[in-house]
Design a protein around this nucleic acid. Structure first.
Lengths: 212, 212
DNA sequence: ATATGATGTGACCAGGTGGTCACGTGACCG
DNA sequence: CGGTCACGTGACCACCTGGTCACATCATAT
């Protein structure tokens, strides 16, 4: 947690520091990110920085928290009542909100991606071990329930595809942002629907005659 | 390329240096990897290192080349005559050889993964820009041909799924190595076949098509 | 025995890192 | 006015990095 002094700062200065920090963590992994560059860009003295934050980790954690709060705004109302919808509807919402978030805040999304890339850095264990298995477990639970309900094949390897699906959220997002558009639009729906159809029916032609 | 002096070294010393380097690049991204640690672990003087290699990049490139040579041993004969097989057979071979390689040489595979994670480091452009779009383009060509042949749906977004499939090679491999086994075995076939079935038919049951 | 040339060596360099600390500055208060 | 106290400051610290270089070592050829 940043120190009191940070929150006492005038709003513009505080948000400038915040913006500069986000810019830095967007461009560099945690280990590469430089406090020296941050204070230089923000135009504050090194000493001041350490009066606002305990250390580099403190700043990083704060930035992650800001991002998490932003991301919360994107999760769909549908996801709050998961038991009322089938798994493909839920997955559609998950991917939609994920891509929307990535499209509207590519910098924030990039920081999240970078965090996942730091798997071997000590910082990773301290941050992710507490928060991230959550995503995998959630997909596992969703898939298990979908099997029970007969929404997906009974012999689905739940663990394998929970892993695949949670990995693919990042892949689909980055594809969309890199290749389709950087804003929310009709193409977004299209990309997600293509992907959802793939999840449901695969790429093969034999099953497509049933559904299309 | 390493200097002549490196190849003049007695075999055991040369392969020790090579092993230590691989160990280092397995554990750290290129930027984090430390020449100081490498020479310490290998028990050679700093100055000697720079008599064997131009610089850190030179060593890294050499290690990558060793890995690439190793990986070549794994590509299936099937892939050498791609036009005789349907796309799912080809993909099966691609994933099989990818996982076999990762299972037999987890350290080598890890270095490859780490390279892909260094997307923003200057080293990435120098290495990958020449070699990697290849993978994506290959999948794109395979998919386009599969569409022509009627092996997959006519309206498949070739670019999107070329991207997905090439990303998923890494995901499937890492899942297999982390969660199933670290050696080649029957489970390998099982994992790949599960995944191939998913690519072909999707996760959905025949009745779940109602829900969209 | 001497000379030559390739190879081994580690102190050293410039430049970076995260973090500290003694001191300045200035706003408020009695 | 003097006192106080929160905040601003940048020189400084120890430590690390990739890379260099003058010198030591040693096998071979003469």
């Amino acid at each position: 947690m940043p120190k009191e002094t940070f929150f006492n700062l005038p709003d513009d200065k505080r948000s400038l520091i915040c913006d500069v920090a986000i810019e830095e963590f967007t461009e560099y992994l945690y280990d590469q990110a430089s406090v020296n560059r941050i204070v230089a860009k923000a135009g504050i003295a090194k000493g001041s920085f350490y009066q606002y934050f305990e250390d580099k980790k403190d700043l990083y954690m704060y930035v992650l928290q800001v991002i998490a709060e932003k991301k919360l705004e994107y999760i769909s109302p549908v996801m709050r009542n998961p038991y009322q919808h089938d798994i493909f509807t839920l997955l559609r919402e998950v991917y939609l909100s994920g891509i929307q978030f990535a499209a509207n805040h590519p910098d924030y999304a990039e920081i999240g991606t970078k965090l996942l890339q730091s798997k071997n850095s000590p910082i990773f264990d301290q941050v992710v071990d507490e928060n991230l298995p959550a995503a995998n477990d959630m997909f596992e639970a969703l898939l298990a329930r979908a099997v029970e309900r007969g929404e997906i094949k009974a012999d689905t390897d739940v663990k394998l595809f929970a892993y695949m699906i949670s990995s693919m959220t990042a892949v689909v997002s980055s594809y969309y942002v890199e290749n389709v558009a950087t804003t929310y639009g009709d193409e977004l729906m299209e990309t997600v629907d293509k992907f959802l159809d793939f999840l449901k029916h695969g790429l093969g032609t034999d099953s497509s005659q049933l559904s299309r």
